[in-house]
């Protein structure tokens, strides 16, 4: 990739052909504009994409006009920026807290969706030649990438469960691996494995599955069993209530987590032990809830078919 930065327009009136194919330019006429002529196929974004989860580098400047660069597009010249590899909280400029103003998030989402819409940034095919044409292509590509990042970030953060799971993932919790890890621990210590799902819930799940199997058999034989259907329906309601109760329980953990993050933000030390404990409590709630959710899904399937 060859990237040449020319400071040719500094202090001069901006040439017309530069502005005609651009998104609306703010009226700040005093702002100088640097032109980046990109002679490569694409601006190489791999350096930012491959980095794990860095905080956004606020010192970066707009590729087009050099103004301090925000994450999504340039406030000064309106140009879409190459996607930065940031976590979803950073993408929306939010702290890593769990109590989130969802209506405000939604507003941000719609606002950014409009501004990042690929159609708005898709004006390739004009009379421009060379670098200009390439710039258009880049911008269109970036707005596509940014839009998809925006959609993923919004979908994840607006949902309370997904948001919590995502935060835990950022904190290094491998939800998929915990069962395996616990087994390995049990094996090496000779102790009984710490069960991820509590025993009483397992009993309940097992019994309900037995009943579901029975109901499936009845249905297969074309037999009706209203009493069993009633019983299973009643249990399904109970499970849904449990699911709701677990969500409330999770929300009380959010408060503890957010308080901890706030203290950290205020410069007070938070021990790794405290952090771990808060994480574990949320993981425990999520496990139970996911387990129940899967069961409710199975029950619904059997009842509806």
């Amino acid at each position: 990739m060859v990237c040449v930065v020319l400071n040719v327009w500094r202090g001069r009136p901006r040439p017309r052909n530069l502005t005609t194919t651009q998104p609306p330019v703010p009226t700040d006429s005093a702002r100088v504009c640097r032109v980046v002529v990109n002679e490569g196929k694409n601006l190489n974004t791999s350096t930012t994409m491959t980095t794990a989860k860095p905080a956004f580098d606020e010192t970066q400047s707009c590729w087009s006009c050099g103004a301090p660069r925000p994450i999504h597009f340039c406030e000064a010249c309106g140009k879409v920026q190459p996607p930065a590899s940031v976590d979803y909280f950073t993408f929306f400029r939010l702290p890593r807290k769990l109590n989130l103003d969802v209506p405000a998030l939604e507003k941000d989402f719609y606002d950014l969706s409009r501004k990042l819409h690929p159609d708005l940034n898709a004006r390739a095919g004009g009379k421009d030649t060379g670098g200009k044409e390439q710039e258009k292509e880049n911008e269109q590509e970036w707005s596509l990438q940014q839009s998809s990042q925006l959609n993923d970030a919004y979908r994840t953060l607006k949902d309370p469960i997904k948001r919590t799971q995502y935060l835990l993932q950022l904190e290094g919790v491998e939800l998929e691996e915990q069962s395996k890890t616990a087994t390995e621990q049990a094996r090496s210590t000779g102790q009984l494995k710490k069960q991820i799902v509590p025993p009483d819930l397992l009993e309940e799940v097992f019994e309900l599955n037995m009943q579901l199997e029975e109901l499936r058999m009845h249905k297969k034989m074309g037999e009706d069993d209203p009493a069993l259907i009633d019983e299973i329906g009643r249990q399904k309601l109970e499970l849904e209530e449990k699911q709701e109760a677990l969500l409330q329980e999770l929300k009380t953990r959010w408060k503890m987590w957010d308080g901890m993050i706030q203290r950290e933000h205020n410069g007070q030390p938070v021990s790794e032990e405290e952090r771990r404990q808060e994480r574990d409590k949320m993981v425990d709630i999520l496990n139970r809830r996911n387990y129940i959710r899967n069961l409710v899904r199975d029950v619904s399937e059997v009842l509806e078919n």
Binding site: Q178, K193, Q195, I196, V197, L202, E203, V205, N294
Partner: peptide, 13 residues
Amino acid sequence: GLVGAPECGDVMK
């Protein structure tokens, strides 16, 4: 032994 996996909702006795 009654065990379950939260990943998939399986239960095994």
